Amino acid sequence: MILITRWNSLGHRGDNTENLVNSINELYDKQNLALITKVPTPIKVIKIHLGKIVEAFFEEKSTVDYNGIVQGYGICFDSKETNKNYLPLSNIHQHQIDYMNKFDCQKGYAFIICNFKKIGGFYLIPIETINNFWNNSKKGGRKSIPVAGLNDRYIVKMKNGLPDYLDALNKYIDDKLKNKAIV
């Protein structure tokens, strides 16, 4: 059981990135481009004081931050951010990778959208790339996904200050449909 006693914990360090992704998802919905749902983390409230939750615990492991449909394609993804020019694999949990792999097996598209704050840019990181780095780390390889190891086709462009990931997603989908190497 994970006890939550302070809501400004490290668990909320990516809230700014999540807020940006939430905003672009709302824009996609308004423009009928996609329907993406933020997946709530299931919690059990233990104590409420003055109308605020002051004590709770996670009931179960969550999956990923978002799932939905984009022009007929099922997607699921997590949003991450890092102050480095790499994404530490410790920021990705085994149950998230397991879920994304199951989603991929069902012909869905699974990925991470990462805000690399040090370089001032976002990348869409496909599950294939995540698996490659994850599996190599288990064999003694690096414990992170470096920006230099990412495919520039999946750079997320900004639109009015928001990470407009649909172009990168379209390239990822196109690459998979044409059986191009993703990693």
Rank of each mutant, 00 (worst) to 15 (best):
M1R: 08
M1I: 09
I4A: 06
I4G: 13
G11E: 06
G11D: 01
N16E: 14
L20G: 08
V21I: 15
I24S: 00
E26T: 10
L27S: 10
K30H: 11
K30Q: 14
L33M: 13
L35F: 14
L35N: 14
T37V: 12
V39M: 05
P40K: 07
P42T: 01
I43Y: 04
I43K: 05
V45P: 03
V45R: 11
I46Y: 04
L50K: 12
A56Y: 01
A56W: 01
F58G: 03
E59P: 00
V64Y: 01
V70Q: 02
V70F: 04
V70M: 02
I75H: 02
I75L: 04
I75W: 05
K84D: 13
I97D: 03
F103E: 08
C105R: 15
G108W: 09
G108M: 08
Y109P: 00
A110N: 13
N115K: 02
K117G: 10
K118V: 05
I119Y: 05
G121R: 14
F122C: 12
I125R: 07
P126F: 01
W134Y: 15
K138P: 01
I145F: 12
I145K: 08
P146W: 12
A148S: 14
Y165P: 03
A168T: 00
N170H: 08
I182L: 13
